[in-house]
C-alpha cells in the first residue's frame, strides 16, 4: 500500500514536503496506526504521537485523506490509496505529524475544566440522581484529541480567541453537572463574540469526532442556556 506523508524536520527543513512510502501490511495489521508503526521501523526519522493504540489517549489525531481522525481507530479496510497523512490542519507543526497543542490546551484550561462548588462539604459525597448523571453522557467521554477543533473553520480563522468545539464541549460538560454551582459564571464567561459566538454551526466538529460526540450540539445548548439566562 502507498502512503504519502507530510514531512517536516525543523532542524533541516525550511518547508514541509510530502514523502511516499510503499509498505505491505501484514496479517495482523488492522488499523492505520499498525501501518504507521511498520513505517517507523523502516524509517525511524518519521515522527508521530501515539500511546494507547485504542482510541483512549487521543494522541494520534491527524488529517487522514483530507479528514481528521485517529490513526488507531481508522480501519485499513477500504481505505482510498494513496493514503495521504498530514498533521492536524491549522495547528503549528513541530515535526512531521506532531503538532503543537499548547493553544488548544490553553483554551481547555480557560473554561475551568473542574468542578466548582463552594457549598459546605457533605459528609460523604455529592450525590447525583441517575437522571442528573445521565446528562453528562455524550460530554465526559471526550479524549481531547483535537480532531474537532482542527476541523473547525471558525477555529482556523481565530485559533487564539475562539475556544473551539473541544473546549466548548467541556464547558457544557460542567454547565450540565448538577454538582457544579458556577453555572452563571461559566455562561457569563462564554458570552463573547469570540469565545463562543464564532461558531456558525457548520458541524465539521461533529462530523469528525472519533468518539461520536457532538460538540455542535453542546454549543447549541450553551447558546440556548444563555438566552434563558438573559430573559
Amino acid at each position: 500500500m502507498r502512503v504519502s506523508i507530510y514531512r517536516f524536520n525543523p532542524e533541516t527543513d525550511t518547508k514541509p514536503r510530502m514523502q511516499d512510502y510503499d509498505v505491505a501490511p501484514e496479517a495482523g495489521d488492522k488499523k492505520l496506526l499498525d501501518v504507521l508503526m511498520r513505517l517507523k521501523t523502516m524509517d525511524d526519522s518519521l515522527s508521530f504521537r501515539r500511546s494507547c493504540r485504542e482510541g483512549v489517549c487521543g494522541s494520534d489525531a491527524m488529517n487522514i485523506n483530507g479528514r481528521n481522525g485517529l490513526a488507531c481507530l481508522t480501519s485499513l479496510q477500504g481505505m482510498k490509496e494513496p493514503v495521504v497523512l498530514r498533521p492536524l490542519p491549522g495547528f503549528p507543526v513541530i515535526r512531521d505529524l506532531i503538532v503543537d497543542m499548547t493553544q488548544f490546551f490553553a483554551h481547555y484550561h480557560s473554561i475551568k475544566p473542574y468542578l466548582i462548588n463552594n457549598e459546605a462539604l457533605p459528609e460523604r459525597e455529592r450525590v447525583q440522581s441517575p437522571a442528573e448523571r445521565e446528562k453528562l453522557n455524550g460530554l465526559y467521554e471526550c479524549i481531547l484529541c483535537a480532531c474537532c477543533s482542527a476541523f473547525c473553520p471558525s477555529f482556523w480563522w481565530n485559533p487564539d480567541k475562539f475556544i473551539g468545539p473541544a473546549g466548548l464541549l467541556q464547558a457544557y460538560r460542567f454547565i450540565s453537572d448538577s454538582r457544579d454551582t458556577a453555572t452563571a459564571e461559566r455562561l457569563a464567561y462564554l458570552d463573547d463574540v469570540y469565545r463562543l459566538y464564532r461558531c456558525r454551526t457548520i458541524m465539521n466538529c461533529t462530523e469528525v469526532c472519533p468518539k461520536g460526540l457532538s460538540p455542535s450540539h453542546a454549543i447549541e445548548r450553551i447558546r440556548l442556556a444563555l438566552v434563558r439566562e438573559s430573559s
Partner: peptide, 10 residues
C-alpha cells in the same frame, strides 16, 4: 466593543 449574544439574537 463587540457583543456576543446580542448580535446572535438580533
Amino acid at each position: 466593543l463587540f457583543l456576543g449574544q446580542r448580535a446572535w439574537v438580533l
